[in-house]
Each structure stands twice: as C-alpha cells, then as structure tokens.
C-alpha cells in the first residue's frame, strides 16, 4: 500500500512551512498582489492554508462552488489565466525551495491545475 500524497509531503507541518513562503511570494508580486489589497490578511492566510492543504491532497472543506464564490468578484475585476499561472509558478517555487521531491511537486501541481476553471469561474 502506498502512502497518500498528503502523508508523503509531510502533512500539516508541510502546510505550515509552505503557507508564509507562498503567501509572501504572491503579495510581493505586483502582477497579482492588488487582488489581495482589500482582504483581511489573517483571513486570507487561513484561506491560503486550506488551499494548500487541498492541493497537498489533505483533508479540506473546499468545494468547486466555494472556490467560484471566493473568486467571482476578482474575475469581474479582470482575474484571468495569466494571474492563475503567476500564482501557480509561486506555488511550484515554494515547493522547490522546501525541497519537496519532483514527483510529489508534479502531483500537487496537477491538483492545483484542476482548480483553474472553478477559480476563473468558467
């Protein structure tokens, strides 16, 4: 029996290690940071944590519907594929910096890619 992705990647401690690295990269990037200007930072960080938990294959309460609702106003404000790609690269770099093995990174990125249409409300 093989372990789950979430166990292999290191579980909740891996999420904790990744969330600030990831969120700081996104906030530091002028191409996407303005989408976070009105967000409460504590709430936003908590959301980033549950998002990472999901794409790490862990237990989460995200649904396609909740991703759609959360990003609807941003899509109206111009959020598109280019922004999704920018954030995806920050996620990949975060995992690389943390030394996550490439085969696990690929699995995470595949799960993240699966959220694209919900996030962009298509």
């Amino acid at each position: 029996m093989s372990q789950s992705l979430f166990e292999n990647i290191g579980g909740q401690p891996a999420v904790d290690a990744a969330v600030d690295l990831f969120y700081r990269k996104v906030l530091n990037d002028d191409r996407v940071s303005h989408y976070f200007d009105d967000a409460d930072m504590d709430d936003q960080r908590a959301k980033q944590k549950s998002f990472l938990t999901m794409v790490f294959g862990g237990p989460n309460d995200y649904t396609g519907e909740s991703l759609r609702d959360a990003h609807k106003d941003l899509v109206d404000d111009g959020l598109n594929d280019s922004h999704f790609d920018v954030v995806a690269v920050h996620l990949q770099n975060t995992l690389d910096e943390l030394g996550v093995p490439a085969n696990l990174v690929n699995q995470v990125m595949a799960l993240a890619a699966g959220t694209r249409d919900d996030i962009l409300n298509r």
């Binding site: 600030d20 700081r24 906030l27 530091n28 930072m41 504590d42 960080r45």
Partner: peptide
C-alpha cells in the same frame, strides 16, 4: 504597515 511587516519577515 501590517503588510510591510509581514513581507519583512514578521509572523502574522
């Protein structure tokens, strides 16, 4: 300033 402090390394 909250955002700046966070980006400069403080825990939220």
């Amino acid at each position: 300033a909250q955002k700046t402090a966070y980006l400069m390394g403080a825990n939220l």
